[in-house]
Amino acid sequence: MFNDVALTTIQKKICMLGEFAVGKTSLVRRYVEGRFDDRYLSTIGVKISRRSMERPYGKLSLLLWDLAGSEEFNGEIRKNYLRGASGILIVCDMTRRETMAGYRRYMEQIQDVGLQIPVVFVANKVDMHANLAISRPEIQTIAADYQVPHFFTSAKTGENVEEVFLQMVAMLNL
């Protein structure tokens, strides 16, 4: 006999974009339940994890699509992976100036596919004070240009990581 499993959890697909090695995978690793190996990232270009949380309106399941950095796939994200997404996190590495250009490029690609969904800018590796190559005002400026919220995070220390997801959930208007 089979069980017909009535779904009670709200599912939301969240995509994480960013250049190679900006720390996308590290950002979510400490906060998610996952059963898939990191090798999926380099084979099919995506690794999926889940972040569950209890909200006043019920159980919420964020399905995080960690997309491989664009350099790994000829400079473009696989646009099919963005379909049906409810929110997007774009991550840059504060110690590598060139990764900040990803904000503009990914925003253009998101607009190309016609997505009008919440976006959050994440500036990662803020704990590496001695090696910072991007200043906070620069991040604030580009976030203001696109009118999206931004967070300075550290996957290493956990600083602001939870806040990023809470902000995304708040923007989902559930």
């Binding site: 089979f2 017909d4 779904l7 599912q11 996952g34 059963r35 399941s61 399905l63 992976y81 049906g84």
Partner: peptide, 29 residues
């Protein structure tokens, strides 16, 4: 398109799997 799980059915004797994760991964594949 999204990979979101709309419905799921599995045997009673089997452990409930991570159906939502699997449906998303299947969609990615």
């Amino acid at each position: 398109h999204s990979g979101l799980l709309a419905a799921h059915s599995h045997p009673q004797e089997a452990q409930a799997s991570d159906a939502d994760l699997i449906s998303n991964m299947l969609t990615a594949i």
